[in-house]
Each structure stands twice: as structure tokens, then as C-alpha cells.
């Protein structure tokens, strides 16, 4: 689904973003990934933490494109629909699996409460990979939003580089 269609269906709204917001999200991702790695937690607890980390990473990618996810029709569902519109195949390519995890989390919350160990560990592994993909993409396409390339971002802005928000 394109950004135009997502806007028309009121699944996202246009909204700019700054580096401080992205850093807050990244701190949350780090915290949830650490939770998901705790061996003492149940599979369900680890899965939920890893899911939160991955969903927050999807939010980062969407915010970097200049959009905010709306809750109309389901905020989490909209997040993974919008993730498919992010113009990077490695980042957008995680949408099918993360949407599968969204449905699993819903099931676990409302009907059949069963998360297996392999499901929790796989999601954690994928969330860690997703973090690297999102960071690589941000540094390449939106360096103004990353702390690491602040100087590059300033240079890019001076020379009329593409602003955040596409």
C-alpha cells in the first residue's frame, strides 16, 4: 500500500520528526531488547518485549519517512501496513513476519495463550537484525536523524540534501 493510499484510508498522517524523537525511540528499543533477552522470563514475556522492540523500530522507519501512524483501524496493524511503504527492501521486507507476530500477540492476549520458546527466540533474533537494518538505512538515507552522522547531516542540509519526511 502506498503512502497516498495509507493517507486516504487515514492509517497515517503527515508529521515531521527530529533526531531527539528518534533517539528516544531507539532507547526504548534497546530497553525492550534487553528485556527480551532475559532467560528468566517466560516465552510469552520475551515475545512481548521483542515484539515491542520490533514495532518501535517500524515506527522509527515510518517517522523518518515523515509520517505518523494513526489508530484508526488498529494502530499496530497500520504500523506494519505502513512499514511496507518504507523505500528500503530490507526494512520493508520484515513487514510480513512482524504482522504474523502481531496476530500471534493478539491471539495470546485474547484467545489461545500459547507462545513457544522457538517463537520468542526467533522474534528476538529478527528484532536484533531489524535494528541493524533500520540503523543502516537511517545512516544512509536520513543521517540528519542519527547522532553518529550529525556532521554529515549538517553538510547535507547546507548543500540542499533531501530533508526528513520524504
Amino acid at each position: 500500500m502506498s503512502w497516498t493510499n495509507l493517507l486516504a484510508e487515514r492509517r497515517v498522517a503527515r508529521e515531521g520528526v527530529d533526531r531527539a524523537e528518534i533517539e528516544r525511540y531507539l532507547a526504548l528499543v534497546a530497553s525492550r531488547l534487553a528485556d527480551a533477552a532475559l532467560e528468566g522470563l517466560s516465552a510469552d514475556g520475551r515475545f512481548t518485549a521483542a515484539y515491542d522492540a520490533a514495532r518501535t523500530l517500524a515506527v522509527i522507519a515510518i517517522r523518518a519517512c515523515g509520517y505518523r501512524v494513526l489508530v484508526h483501524g488498529g494502530g499496530h496493524k497500520n504500523t506494519f501496513l505502513a512499514l511496507r511503504a518504507v523505500p528500503d527492501p530490507r526494512v520493508a521486507g520484515e513487514a510480513a513476519f512482524l504482522d504474523q507476530c502481531r496476530r500471534k500477540r493478539n491471539e495470546a492476549s485474547y484467545s489461545s495463550p500459547h507462545i513457544s520458546r522457538v517463537e520468542a527466540e526467533d522474534l528476538l533474533e529478527k528484532a536484533r537484525e531489524f535494528l541493524l537494518s533500520v540503523q543502516d538505512w537511517l545512516e544512509r538515507e536520513h543521517p540528519e536523524l542519527t547522532a553518529r552522522d550529525r556532521a554529515d547531516a549538517a553538510t547535507k542540509a547546507e548543500h540542499g540534501g533531501r530533508p526528513a519526511g520524504v
Binding site: 513476519f97 504474523q100 507476530c101 522457538v118 517463537e119 522474534l123 533474533e125 529478527k126
Partner: peptide, 8 residues
């Protein structure tokens, strides 16, 4: 099997 390998 990893669940992520099933997704697509």
C-alpha cells in the same frame, strides 16, 4: 523451523 522463515 523458524517462524520468520514461514512468513512470506
Amino acid at each position: 523451523v523458524k517462524p520468520s522463515a514461514l512468513a512470506n
